[in-house]
Design a binder for these strands. Structure first.
Lengths: 134, 134
DNA sequence: TATAATAAGTTTCCTAGTCAATGATATTCT
DNA sequence: AGAATATCATTGACTAGGAAACTTATTATA
């Protein structure tokens, strides 16, 4: 319930910037990894290649992302942020922080830290590292 | 990440019983509330009426749910579990418990209780009560 | 070196939601 | 009583992702 509520509220916030959560997640990954092939993003985001292909297409159409050919391998290409895309990162990151604060700042500092610690334990034991998309 | 992983693994488990998470959620709500009109279910599950309408249709087709006319109001009807549907509840509930155990039994008793406590605080402060569906 | 196996991405088909429009009653207001 | 309005549910158009087939390119093998 909590996770869904946090996510849904975040979706509402980023919608104001004409971006979906999946798109944010994609752009955020690009910010760290660009230039990066779709296959790696699929891995990082826990989505299928097909989904990434379509997501990339949408972001391309919005002018937030560009493809660059790989000259060693004609099948492959890499994805990067456009300047416009990169400029959106801090705006969206601020919304993410705001969203987290809205939910988790009602906790005491100790509760907050404990929650983080426990969730990290759980993620680690399961070997989780895919950025959630919904 | 944790929430998504728990949910995805649960989806995998119930798929073995030819049921989706949304269907389980629906049936579980019915178990508590039957007979219940779709509108109430939509509220409880945090889904739109449209989604409930289609979900109900699928469960009807599977023979797990039945509709009963409301004779006072011809627009309305109620939904209930069939015997077959009711029989599935304990099976699916066991899978849910098993799934929770799989993820959360690696925590110490204290960590487990703390996690519950904190999540309950968060849910309460937000007034959350919709059963998650994904 | 021709052919088979594999790999990177895309596309198609399917499922499952939302949203908005609609249909069919019910209710309210005059 | 009849018109306007509200309510319950379904439907259709649309969106997003998964699975698997497909296309093209690369690598391995006989």
């Amino acid at each position: 319930m909590v996770s869904n509520a946090v996510s849904q509220e975040f979706a509402r916030k980023v919608a104001g910037q004409d971006v979906t959560v999946a798109e944010w997640s994609f752009m955020r990954a690009l910010y760290d990894l660009e230039p990066v092939p779709p296959s790696v993003l699929a891995e990082k985001m826990g989505m299928t290649k097909g989904a990434i292909s379509k997501l990339a297409e949408r972001l391309l159409a919005k002018g937030l992302v560009v493809r660059t050919e790989n000259k060693d391998d004609k099948r492959a290409h890499s994805l990067s942020l456009t300047n416009e895309g990169r400029d959106k990162i801090p705006v969206l990151a601020a919304l993410a922080d705001e969203n987290d604060a809205e939910f988790f700042d009602t906790l005491t500092r100790e509760e907050h830290e404990t929650l983080n610690r426990i969730l990290k334990i759980l993620a680690e034991r399961r070997g989780l590292d895919a950025t959630p998309v919904d």
